[in-house]
Computed example of a mutant assay.
Amino acid sequence: MKPFIYITRKLPEAVVAPLKNEFDVEMWEREDAPVPRDILLEKAEKASALLTMLSDKVNRELLQNASHLKVVSNLAVGFDNIDLEAAKEKGVTITNTPDVLTETTADLTFALLMATARRIVEADRYIKDGKWKSWSPLLLAGMDIHHKTMGIVGMGSIGEAVARRAKGFNMEVLYHNRSRKSEAEESLEVRYVPFDDLLSQSDFVVVLAPLNTETKGMFQENQFSKMKKTAIFINAARGAIVNESALEQALKRGEIAGAGMDVFEAEPISEDHPLLQFDQVVAIPHIGSSSKDTRYDMMTLCVENILAVLKGDNPKTAVK
């Protein structure tokens, strides 16, 4: 009997073909909605491998009942949806998709920053709503990006890629990280500063940190109050790093000038969420790595990791 592999979203047939050639493969039939929890638990009980999305909770409950499970291949660089301790106890290998999405996510992060600073979404809506009647000197005047100061919270590979882009705009780049990155400091001319100094000195505060016990709820009212009134806040990391009520209040009080958000505490965000009522907030639906090339590369890497583990080899990108 062939090992069973369950894939929690509908993926292109060309991507999963290498798995279907050797194993019994089943996919959730929808591309636009997550597999229901009861079905995921049922499939996991007999699966040797799971190919999962960030929306799938691979917790202790699931892992304890997955007696055949050898590998969970997560279609993301993050893995906060997975209980790593429980997986280790069960001897289940966890893999992710780092590196292949670094440059694409950095592109999106900088695009989100530019769209927020230069009011691109407002300007697009202004024309489409028929409001543009004549040119005026301060029509939809935004904020310069060049020669400003960017503060990056979380200087991993994506943070470094964003810093490279910032240098092309002659920006000064500060960063705060759990550990110093001396090589990045030298090659990119970025400067490490304490967290509070980054908040008070940056024109753009860009969050690219992983979600963990240290970063969860990292941005509260106190942190926003330390930022410049002209500052723009960008979150392209994880929604739970930010207290959205605190961000809402900071915008209401004029403590910061705007925000660009690719991630939210609850996803999908509700259409009546208070943050969406602000013109100076640009909100996009967690599309940091969403280019066709990169998503295909991520899916392919997931498949390669599963093949490696089920054949007794080391996967390319195991989570340590």
Rank of each mutant, 00 (worst) to 15 (best):
K167D: 09
F233G: 00
I145R: 00
F219E: 03
G254Q: 12
V77G: 09
M27C: 01
V92M: 03
L276R: 10
H286A: 01
F204G: 06
Q280G: 05
M1Q: 11
Q277P: 04
S289G: 12
I284L: 11
V205M: 03
A111R: 11
L11P: 02
I145V: 03
A141S: 13
L40R: 12
K88G: 07
P285I: 12
D24V: 02
K216R: 15
M299F: 14
G130L: 08
L251D: 04
R37N: 05
R295P: 05
S67N: 15
M261L: 15
A257C: 00
K128H: 15
I152K: 08
P194D: 06
H147R: 14
E13D: 07
T300H: 08
S270R: 14
E189Q: 15
I5W: 01
E172C: 08
R30N: 13
A184M: 12
F219Y: 05
R125H: 09
L69A: 00
P18C: 05
G239N: 06
L140C: 04
F219A: 06
P12A: 08
P274D: 09
E85W: 06
G78M: 11
T317D: 00
D203W: 00
K88H: 05
G142M: 03
L198T: 11
A250E: 01
A47L: 01
A66S: 15
L75M: 14
E26H: 14
V309C: 10
Y6H: 01
V281L: 10
I287F: 07
T300V: 11
R37K: 13
L40D: 06
K20Y: 04
M171W: 01
V100S: 10
R9D: 01
R118Y: 08
F224K: 14
V190Q: 02
K43S: 02
S157P: 08
I284T: 15
L112Y: 01
A209N: 02
D197V: 15
I306V: 04
L174M: 09
L69K: 10
G258D: 05
A33G: 02
K316V: 13
R118K: 14
K167P: 10
A240G: 04
K43I: 01
L75W: 07
